[in-house]
């Protein structure tokens, strides 16, 4: 593997990875309007669903809308390029960072960001759309499924975002490249959500969570291996 050719920096280090992740969060919280925009988008999307479907939507509609809102919130979260993606910043960072710690930091950041947004979506959704179909225990399982989905989406979208930015494409390219790849995740997630809503016992639907974990692991590993090829010139 000749991926280390362009950057003779030290191999990936844990401390730098932690530092980069914390840096990403610090940057995000410093510009409060970005984060506020994401939260506003999620709540507005849920409220639109509430207006369209009403508070007593049947289980299928409830399930479908929940995942669609989560999907669009996730794409909204990754649509904004990072300041570090500017060509001049990248050509500097190539000499001080290993690309693998950079992609890991991005994945972690997106996973945690999407986790937070998932919490907001879930709370807003149960608040507006009602939760007659979910008992407390089932709501917890549904929430776990949403978290697993958000992690799977983060592991893929961190990579797709960089790919689209490197190709000088905007949000359109992220959607064109990311949506088809994310469909398996959404198919499994909706299946899992429907099982939870229909009262299928957790043991009979847990394999869907396992699928999601496998997909996250697969996407993460692919991103970890392939990111250096995207990043260098």
């Amino acid at each position: 593997m000749n991926s280390g050719r362009a950057h003779k920096v030290t191999p990936p280090s844990w401390s730098r990875y932690v530092h980069l992740t914390r840096h990403a969060f610090r940057m995000e919280f410093r510009k409060k309007n970005g984060l506020a925009g994401l939260i506003l988008f999620a709540i507005c999307a849920v409220y639109t669903c509430y207006q369209v479907a009403g508070s007593r939507a049947d289980a299928e509609t409830w399930n479908a809308l929940a995942w669609v809102v989560l999907l669009f919130s996730a794409f909204n979260a990754v649509s904004k390029p990072w300041p570090e993606d500017a060509p001049e910043m990248r050509s500097y960072l190539i000499h001080v960072l290993h690309p693998r710690e950079w992609i890991l930091a991005r994945m972690t950041f997106f996973a945690m960001l999407l986790s937070g947004i998932t919490c907001i979506v879930f709370v807003a959704f149960t608040l507006f759309m009602g939760s007659e179909d979910l008992s407390t225990g089932r709501a917890l399982w549904f929430f776990c499924g949403m978290q697993a989905t958000s992690i799977a989406m983060a592991s893929l979208l961190a990579m797709i975002q960089t790919l689209a930015i490197r190709a000088n494409g905007g949000f359109g390219l992220i959607a064109v490249l990311g949506l088809p790849l994310i469909i398996p995740v959404i198919l499994i997630a909706t299946q899992y959500g429907m099982d939870v809503l229909n009262g299928v016992s957790f043991a009979d639907t847990a394999h869907n969570l396992l699928f999601l974990a496998t997909l996250s692991g697969g996407f993460g590993a692919l991103g970890y291996i392939l990111f250096p090829y995207l990043w260098r010139d």
């Binding site: 000088n168 392939l226 995207l230």
Partner: peptide
């Protein structure tokens, strides 16, 4: 659809070496 996305990615890039690298990465995902 995924492979159509691959063709879209190729068409949106002019720099040949970069196109080769990015589309190869996307193709592995596909």
């Amino acid at each position: 659809l995924v492979y159509s996305g691959y063709m879209v990615l190729r068409n949106s890039l002019d720099n040949a070496p970069l196109r080769a690298r990015l589309s190869a990465v996307y193709n592995l995902f596909a």
